[in-house]
Write a protein that binds this DNA or RNA. Structure first.
Lengths: 210, 210
DNA sequence: TAACAATACGAGTAAATGCTCGTGTTGTCG
DNA sequence: CGACAACACGAGCATTTACTCGTATTGTTA
């Protein structure tokens, strides 16, 4: 992660990070996630990230090539945590046995919790129109997520052709992406109600495919 | 529309537009819609709009106060056309008699056509995270759309409390908003397939509420 | 036609912002 | 300790961009 800690991509050697630097990288990513979550990607300035991290703008650029590089690293960071999350929550076996409602709950609950715990996540993934740099930064992760959801759905609907499965995955992901900002911005019972509503939508949609 | 054609909001009198000016306003809105649709709102520069409209930057600001004012006017423009669309496509009577599938089709078909015909629409309405200026600009229209969809859903589910109807409307709208960019960007059969998939999602979701 | 308002121009301005650079400090390794 | 690399600073550069302003032209109105 953190672009392998490299500042440049070309011939210049990557600096060998010392403990202080490793920690700084984490602090910067943490700060970036916070500001992205509050202001959105476009509106976030690199100086604001530096300030939030308690360092100078110059220091920031000793760890990251540019703003997109921060987004890239943060996206990779989230991807890793999502993988861990998925591994902990369900396996193929649990999928096979469970019915649709339980399956949706098993995925949706941790996913909502993840979004609440990581406010910067939605800023990177929940946008429908992205600036070119950001799109490239998160594209690989988007593809990974899509693949995983498609695999899940393929288990539910074994007869369907791959393109159909892909489209179903797309719709399901889009639905979650669109609802996530509303859910995280709501609070208390309204948040729960919106989450339940999203669940209903997913179940209702997926039921039709089976 | 066009902010009533006023350039300033305060005491200074609004200029009395002549035919040339009225036409310019339309040309500017048309150009803005095109560029918004291609680049997105943030990435669109006012100079690019002016160039596309074939006028100078200075001329642009004789008709619009600022960039947000253009978005506001364009949003109002779209709102008016949407109202006309709705009036032409279905009435409360048609809703009462039809079943769910037909109702969804009746709304979705023209809506997709509208988005294809007006590429700038999604740039103003389909974003999940909006800059402050844009959010304010389109908020009233969003509210109007939400109200209309809620009214429709209230007819389908008469027993439900208003908050529940509102949430269902929210989910339905979000689903359409999220899928619209994908549908407009796709072409030919893939576009049709995605549209059909969106239809399935809406029907599946709304079925559960009835 | 005289006077005024609306339209048009486009170089230029002020502000924002991603990022650099010169310099100084801290850690590492022989 | 000596030398070098990593880390840190923050003023400021270069660029972008929303918007202005002085000026010239076209339309309207009495």
């Amino acid at each position: 992660m953190a672009g392998d800690g490299r500042v440049t991509e070309g011939t210049p050697a990557a600096p060998r990070r010392q403990a202080r630097g490793q920690q700084r990288i984490q602090e910067i990513l943490h700060a970036a996630a916070a500001v992205f979550g509050e202001q959105g990607y476009d509106a976030t300035t690199t100086n604001a990230i530096a300030k939030r991290a308690g360092i100078s703008p110059g220091s920031l650029y000793q760890f990251f090539k540019d703003k997109d590089d921060i987004a890239r690293s943060l996206a990779a960071h989230y991807a890793a945590q999502l993988t861990a999350l998925r591994a902990g929550v369900f396996t193929v076996e649990t999928v096979d046995g469970a019915d649709l409602e339980d399956l949706v709950d098993a995925v949706l609950g941790p996913l909502v919790a993840f979004n609440l715990a990581h406010p910067g996540f939605k800023a990177l993934f929940a946008r429908t129109d992205m600036p070119a740099g950001l799109r490239d930064a998160v594209a690989p992760i988007q593809a990974t997520i899509h693949q995983r959801v498609a695999d899940l759905i393929a288990l539910l609907v074994p007869d369907r052709p791959p393109e159909g499965v892909a489209r179903t995955a797309t719709v399901a992901i889009q639905l979650v992406r669109a609802m996530t900002p509303l859910i995280t911005e709501a609070e208390g019972p309204e948040r729960d109600a919106l989450t339940a509503e999203l669940r209903e939508a997913l179940v209702g949609y997926l039921r039709r495919q089976v």
